[in-house]
């Protein structure tokens, strides 16, 4: 379960402020976050992942109060418990799909056992999203749709309990958008992961269990 309570956050050099009195996402729930540009969707995902910390309030993921952890502990937490899918994919172009997929577990320094498990899971994910034949291709030689599927594999390979997706289909053509989002939702469902996806695209909302409109739960200034 993700629980955000009494959250206040502002960027020091801008007037942006995000206030969330209470937001709860149940374990295994697939939730879409919507809201206009600048409403704080990305910021909220960063706060939950511990990339940023709120100036006030408490963010808990499961039993862990992320907002109270040190920077190093937040990084450890994120590495093991959060899978991130970015709007611009943010794959390492010089690495293969396989190397990208295993990057968090291998470069992050997870134990060998976990790395092996991630490698096996990556194989299953690649098969599920139709990327098996592309595992040994460099990421910068893939199409955009393939790149986002590779990014999806990276986010889920180490079986994180929470998957955060920041506009994951924002840079895809309409044909790919629905396909990729379906893959993301089904992959998260199969792994019983909690999915929180920021999106602009209302056509994708039926894929989710719940839609959270930041205008209802938060008050960006």
């Amino acid at each position: 379960m993700i629980r955000c309570e009494g959250i206040e956050f502002g960027y020091p050099q801008s007037g942006f402020r995000l206030t969330i009195p209470l937001l709860v996402v149940e374990t295994g729930e697939k939730a879409a976050i919507i809201g206009p540009s600048g409403s704080g969707k990305t910021t909220l995902l960063h706060l939950i992942a511990g990339v940023r910390t709120p100036s006030r309030g408490k963010i808990a993921v499961g039993e862990t109060v992320v907002s109270e952890l040190s920077d190093a502990a937040r990084r450890r937490f994120r590495l093991r418990n959060v899978g991130f899918v970015f709007q611009n994919f943010e794959l390492f172009g010089h690495l293969t799909v396989r190397e990208n997929g295993l990057f968090p577990s291998a470069a992050g320094g997870m134990p060998r056992r976990d790395q092996d498990a991630a490698a096996a899971e990556l194989g299953r994910l690649a098969a599920a999203v139709g990327m098996t034949d592309h595992l040994d291709r460099r990421a910068d030689r893939l199409s955009r749709g393939e790149q986002q599927r590779a990014a999806l594999c990276r986010a889920l390979a180490h079986r994180p309990p929470v998957v955060l997706a920041d506009e994951p289909t924002g840079n895809l053509d309409p044909g790919n958008k629905k396909h990729v989002m379906e893959l993301l939702v089904s992959a998260a469902s199969e792994r019983e992961a909690t999915l929180l996806a920021a999106t602009h695209d209302e056509s994708l909302l039926p894929l989710f269990d719940r839609v959270i409109d930041l205008r209802d739960v938060g008050t960006p200034a």
């Binding site: 960063h46 992942a49 990339v51 920077d71 190093a72 990084r75 450890r76 937490f77 994120r78 590495l79 093991r80 959060v82 991130f84 970015f86 943010e90 390492f92 990057f103 968090p104 470069a107 992050g108 320094g109």
Partner: peptide
């Protein structure tokens, strides 16, 4: 920044 967001330590 990507490595940071993925959770790699400093």
């Amino acid at each position: 920044q990507t490595m940071h967001r993925l959770g790699l330590s400093r």
